Computed example of a mutant assay.
Amino acid sequence: MIFQQTLKNKVTVSGIGLHTGKTITLTLRPAQPGTGIVFHRVDMSPAVSIEACAKNVVNTRLSTTIGKDGASVSTIEHLMAALYGCGIDNAHVDINGPEVPIMDGSAAPLVETIRNGGVEVSSKARRFLVIKKPVSVTIGDKRATVIPSRQYKISFDMQFEHPVVKSQFRTLTFTAESFSDEIAGARTFGFLSEVEMLKAHGLALGGSLDNAVVIGDDGVLNPEGLRYSDEFVRHKILDSVGDLYLCGHRLIGHVKALKSGHELNHKLVTELLSRPECFSLVEFTPQESAAPFNLPLPELAWLEA
Rank of each mutant, 00 (worst) to 15 (best):
T6V: 12
K8N: 15
K10T: 15
T12V: 14
G17E: 13
L18R: 14
T23I: 14
L28Y: 13
R29K: 15
Q32R: 13
G34Q: 10
I37C: 06
I37T: 10
V38H: 07
D43W: 01
A47I: 00
V48Y: 00
A54G: 03
A54W: 02
K55F: 04
N59V: 10
T60S: 15
L62Q: 13
L62Y: 13
T64G: 03
I66R: 00
D69G: 05
A71K: 01
A71G: 05
S72N: 12
S74P: 07
S74A: 15
H78C: 12
M80I: 07
Y84L: 11
I88Y: 11
D89I: 10
A91W: 09
V93H: 02
V93N: 03
V93M: 03
D94R: 01
G97Q: 08
D104F: 06
S106Q: 04
P109W: 02
E112P: 00
T113K: 12
I114H: 05
R115E: 15
V119G: 13
E120V: 08
S122K: 09
S122P: 10
A125M: 04
A125D: 12
R126G: 09
R127Y: 12
F128A: 06
L129Q: 04
V130C: 05
K133Y: 08
P134D: 07
S136Q: 15
V137C: 07
G140V: 07
D141S: 15
R143G: 03
A144L: 06
A144H: 04
T145W: 02
S149H: 05
K153L: 14
K153Y: 01
K153I: 06
I154Q: 02
F156S: 04
D157N: 14
F160T: 01
F160Q: 03
P163A: 09
P163E: 09
V164P: 04
V165L: 14
Q168A: 13
F169S: 14
T171D: 01
L172H: 02
T173V: 15
F174Q: 09
F174M: 15
F179A: 13
F179R: 09
S180F: 11
D181H: 09
E182D: 13
E182N: 08
I183L: 11
A184D: 02
G185M: 00
G185W: 01
G190T: 12
E194D: 15
L198K: 11
G202E: 11
A204F: 10
G207P: 13
S208L: 10
A212K: 07
A212N: 07
V220H: 06
E224F: 09
R227I: 07
Y228M: 02
Y228I: 02
S229R: 05
V233W: 04
R234I: 04
H235F: 12
K236D: 14
D239K: 04
V241N: 05
V241L: 14
D243C: 05
D243A: 03
L244D: 00
H249E: 03
I252K: 00
A257Q: 06
G261R: 04
E271Y: 02
P276Q: 11
C278Y: 05
C278E: 05
V282E: 03
V282F: 03
V282G: 03
E283Y: 01
F284D: 07
P286N: 11
P286F: 11
E288I: 10
L297V: 01
P298E: 06
